[in-house]
């Protein structure tokens, strides 16, 4: 057992300060519940099943958006990189859409797709699309020219070269883009749920805010943080398994 560092003490100290300030009334506000009450609220809402159901819904929307946006990003990225004409034609449109802040596309999408799953999945997919596209382009640029030349020498056609040489070679880049996108996807799912509709964790957060139920609100924030952390850890583990050869090369 390693001796806890000063940082762990700092965290514990801050948590103790939180608890004491709320219990002893140093911060006299209903918005400042003690940390133990927050944990209690988290346990209570988990046991009743309300929170797990909402988390499940949010995760479903997140993964659906991640899949759709990720696929689109890889396909468009490979297209742009392998057929320069496509990049010249559509690059400008993509670059004009990229800087739009995500929450702002929600109102127009509500008009077209309503308040429920299709709208939210689309918002997530749009967010995921751009980092995956950027990384796929970067990945294709990093493919070794020798590998491509060898493929050509052996008479492998353009399609097969794209699928069997280019795609595996840029997989590490694509996965890095997906890892960034995964973090964004959870955030954007929650944002979409906060702004529109009555689904998911995001909506729960806003409902609890309006109800003035502070412990539940902080519990939701804690849960989201834990979820984000677990998703990232899980993805990194999968990434290491999927591209072990890449890490074995010492990169």
């Amino acid at each position: 057992m390693r001796r806890p560092s000063s940082g762990v003490w700092l965290v514990l100290g801050l948590l103790a300060l939180w608890e004491a300030s709320a219990r002893l009334g140093w911060v006299d506000s209903t918005n400042w519940p003690p940390v133990t009450e927050v944990v209690g609220a988290l346990v209570r809402d988990s046991v009743t099943g309300e929170l797990p159901l909402r988390v499940g819904g949010s995760l479903y929307r997140m993964f659906a958006g991640l899949l759709a946006g990720g696929l689109a990003g890889v396909v468009v990225g490979l297209g742009f990189a392998l057929v320069p004409m496509l990049a010249r034609l559509f690059g400008v449109v993509v670059e004009l859409l990229r800087p739009i802040p995500v929450p702002a596309v929600i109102p127009p999408l509500v008009l077209f797709l309503g308040l429920d799953d299709p709208m939210k999945i689309t918002v997530v997919a749009l967010t995921v699309f751009f980092p995956v596209l950027t990384n796929t382009l970067q990945g294709v640029r990093a493919v070794e020219a020798e590998a491509l030349a060898m493929g050509r020498t052996f008479g492998i056609g353009a399609w097969r070269r794209a699928v069997f040489i280019v795609l595996p070679a840029c997989l590490p880049y694509i996965l890095a883009g997906l890892r960034v996108a995964l973090g964004l996807a959870l955030v954007v799912t929650v944002v979409a749920e906060m702004i529109a509709g009555e689904q998911g964790v995001g909506n729960y957060l806003v409902v609890m805010q309006f109800a003035g139920r502070a412990p539940e609100m902080y519990a939701t924030v804690l849960l989201l943080a834990a979820l984000g952390y677990a998703l990232n850890r899980g993805f990194v583990a999968l990434e290491h398994r999927a591209i072990r050869w890449w890490f074995a090369m010492g990169r």
Partner: peptide
């Protein structure tokens, strides 16, 4: 890892 957008309601 705390999604900062989720902090907007508590901050309000």
């Amino acid at each position: 890892p705390i999604p900062k957008s989720a902090l907007v309601p508590p901050l309000m």
